[in-house]
Write a protein that binds this DNA or RNA. Sequence first.
DNA 1: TTTTATTGATTGACGAGTCAATAAAAAATA
DNA 2: TATTTTTTATTGACTCGTCAATCAATAAAA
Lengths: 194, 194
Amino acid sequence: MPKIGMEPLRRKALIDATISAIGERGSLNVTMSEIADRAGVSSALAHHYFGPKEELLLATMRHLLADLGADTITALNKAGTPRERLSAIVGVNFNAGQFREETVHAWLAFYVEAQNSLSLRRLLRIYARRLHSNLMSGLLPLVSRDEAARMAEAIAAMIDGLYIRRALRDGLPNPLSAGALVEDYIDAKLAQVR
Amino acid sequence: MPKIGMEPLRRKALIDATISAIGERGSLNVTMSEIADRAGVSSALAHHYFGPKEELLLATMRHLLADLGADTITALNKAGTPRERLSAIVGVNFNAGQFREETVHAWLAFYVEAQNSLSLRRLLRIYARRLHSNLMSGLLPLVSRDEAARMAEAIAAMIDGLYIRRALRDGLPNPLSAGALVEDYIDAKLAQVR
DNA sequence: TTTTATTGATTGACGAGTCAATAAAAAATA
DNA sequence: TATTTTTTATTGACTCGTCAATCAATAAAA
């Protein structure tokens, strides 16, 4: 009963299934069969559309990255002042969509896998650079170039760290709001530098 | 040519080999044979001393944790003031021994694996709690309880984030000194709160 | 002779990737 | 319009490799 034009649907379903499978297992240790099952197709079909497993993982990572990018653009467009730009960036990273447990797990898993995969590392580099330059666009009007670079690095690290901690949530006493912590850092620094 | 009393030596060698193998691969995707090879023994011997693979990984994690704990105690003993305690804690996490690339890779890999392993998760929780309480011991004399909790959480997140970024070092423009970023945060907050 | 150290060989499971076969839609041809 | 052909969708069955874990066998020390 093959219906025509299934390819885009299947690709999307497989990528979604990949995210949810990784989110549940908590690591990239998911089999093609498991992913295919979740998408309601055979593993052979997954290979048919994506070839080797790494291609599917890459496509999934690209999807995550594109989502984050789109959210960021939307948020930045609503921001007027530089300070608002900073809040917009922080907000995007901790909004309900991005900070979902399965998404967070997927990011973390990809970070580790990037150690073995050049293409994955490249993708993450793009993300890191984009975040950095977005942060700089908000910071440069407010502080010196040196200070901006330092703050951008610190904010990025804090975001990554909060993602990790979210993934391991049960180790943390009181789950203070993650975004507020970053905002608090920004305020403290801006007050200090004047 | 069996010499007696090899057990402790072999255990140590296998744990060291595990750290270096994970550090090189960048993930827990290392085989028992690979680890055993590095330790100069057969994989059968590794199983003989540690049983299933997870036991070896747990022992390795415990070793890392014990190292960090010992370093922390030493550093804290040299610290007089609360502010010095904070610097001591930060310093330990970024000193040459702990911030070695292979160690950082191992930590990151274990974080991900913790998603699948209850015992591993338990170990990481111990680490998180210890870090938190150490930070609080430095912060409480300086700021309110609420503020201390917030700062402890932020500092811990920053440390975790800087570890991630160190593991993916090639994505980052200028590798500012990681410890200095955390110190800078602490200074800014203490200045703000007065 | 019992205990400790050690390994080569083997087993068994699991999982990625391939392939030939099936079937329906679409296009081409008669 | 009726048919043949090509393209797209789909899977079950199979291959091949890898790897954790076991075990029986060997040998030296106690």
